[in-house]
């Protein structure tokens, strides 16, 4: 027994070292004075200064944030509706196809999703003249499509593990389905919708392949700019950018899970 638990402990240590050492090295070297990746030349913030003076990166970051916020909001609305349609609406024709296509974007290789959406946009443009040009709007539509699947799965798992008696009681008391949804179901699943929104936001902020396919000549998102820079090798200002992104996301996640953990403990459901 002792031997097996030591084995599990060393597996955990190895696994977490594997997950975290590359990120920690990246963060440490973003404060490196030297431009050579492996030589420590003393502490410096020069790469951060260089980053904030790089207009191309700032523009791309703003565009990415705009696309992420818009697509996450629409994905949350559509994904929540899909979650409701899969759990609360009983039987209807085409339900099987619906269940089939809702989870597929989760695992579909990105190159397929990207190429197929682009060819769809091109065909639509020929057929009905819309979308007039490709750019932020087509990237947003593409991001809504794949991240609504994530929201739907999160909302669906919450809804199917939830006690339905409140909704049933409300229906018995004469509440109409839409009223019950807005007054009871949605407030109950609000935390899941929030985590769905956050996940959709980060997925959109992170996507390179689908954005590259669906973007036009004008619009470059942050991952597209990063990718074109790092394809040629390590550049220290990208280390600084990575530290800022990873740092802010990590702080956000730690705070969010701490709040959720406390909330769970207080309400006694843990």
């Amino acid at each position: 027994m002792q031997k097996s638990s030591r084995l599990v402990f060393s597996a955990l240590c190895f696994g977490f070292a594997f997950l975290y050492i590359p990120i920690l090295v990246l963060i440490v070297f973003s404060f490196n004075q030297s431009a050579i990746a492996s030589v420590w030349g003393g502490f410096s913030l020069r790469w951060y200064t260089a980053l904030f003076n790089n207009q191309q990166i700032i523009d791309a970051a703003l565009l990415s944030l705009k696309i992420a916020a818009t697509s996450a909001t629409f994905a949350t609305i559509l994904g929540t509706m899909a979650g409701l349609a899969l759990t609360q609406m009983g039987r209807y024709s085409g339900r099987l196809v619906f269940t089939g296509i809702i989870a597929a974007p989760l695992v579909m290789p990105e190159v397929i999703t990207g190429l197929s959406l682009l060819l769809m946009f091109v065909s639509l443009q020929e057929l009905i003249g819309w979308p007039v040009s490709r750019g932020a709007s087509t990237i947003t539509i593409a991001h809504i499509t794949f991240s609504m699947a994530y929201v739907a799965v999160i909302v669906q798992s919450r809804l199917s593990s939830m006690d339905q008696s409140l909704q049933e009681a409300a229906m018995d008391l004469g509440g109409r389905p839409a009223q019950v949804a807005f007054d009871i179901t949605l407030p109950l699943i609000a935390p899941s919708m929030l985590s769905g929104w956050l996940l959709a936001f980060t997925l959109s902020l992170d996507d390179l392949v689908i954005a590259s396919f669906t973007s036009g000549a004008g619009a470059s998102t942050l991952p597209m700019v990063i990718f074109s820079k790092i394809k040629l090798g390590v550049t220290p200002d990208i280390n600084a950018l990575a530290t800022l992104i990873i740092g802010s996301v990590s702080i956000g996640i730690v705070i969010a899970s701490w709040i959720m953990f406390r909330h769970e403990r207080r309400s006694g459901t843990a």
């Binding site: 975290y20 492996s38 390590v234 950018l241 990590s250």
Partner: peptide, 27 residues
Amino acid sequence: MLVILPFWTSFLLRVYAWMGLLGKNGI
């Protein structure tokens, strides 16, 4: 949380971290 945390941070940048580790002049 430690398992989920990398999942939320940028995929592209986590791949990039390995470039700094494995390169010819890497760590």
